[in-house]
Amino acid sequence: MREAFRQELKDLKAEVVSIGKGVTDRTRDAVTSLVTGDVDLAEKVVAGDEEIDRRTLAVEEHSIEVIATQFPVARDLRLLHSLTYIALHYERMADLAVNIARAAKRTAGRRGPQTLYDLIQAQGNLVYRVLDATCEALETRDVELARKLQDLDEPIDHLYKQFFRELARLQDEEDIEWASSMVLASRYLERIADNAVDIGERIAYLVTGEFEALHSPDEETS
């Protein structure tokens, strides 16, 4: 019985890590579609969201079932509860990636200043790194890496602010719909990274058993 239970926990954890990797791929595709104007790739990201939703729900259902039948305690309980929490965060991140893909569809065919594309790409590259780190920290129970996520998030916020400054230099004739879509995309990337920081805090909890101070975004710049 107990062996089967342990295997279930392992499988559930592997599934959440795999969801996390799926979200990383989708975020990468979403940013690429935006920067390159690839509508097909953007469509693929939008269409793929259903799968993430379904798998997240399955993790939650499975967790509830295990709690009801196996009475997990201590690290098993922390793991189960945290896996549900982390899966739901990944699911929200996938929704944000979908929003970026939608922005890509809206802006495809129009071309703005290259600086702004470069900034989005730079921000995206940092976000992939943060996402990879959540998966790795969860997989290997790496508390130090989980705690480092907050530091990794900082330059992303920084780029988001820089994005605003660049926008202010736009000339009147620039397309305002294009500009606002790009701002939103930058904002979504910043939100994805914030979710990753929350995941990092939860990984630290599942390993140590101590709730650490929750991170809150410094300011709402929207």
Binding site: F5, V73, A74, R75, L77, R78, G209, E210
Partner: peptide, 17 residues
């Protein structure tokens, strides 16, 4: 004790190890 036991032996016992 049932969420974050401090001793590994407690953890192993209550989780059925």
């Amino acid at each position: 004790l049932f969420t974050s036991p401090k001793d590994r032996r407690t953890e192993d016992y209550i989780t059925g190890r």
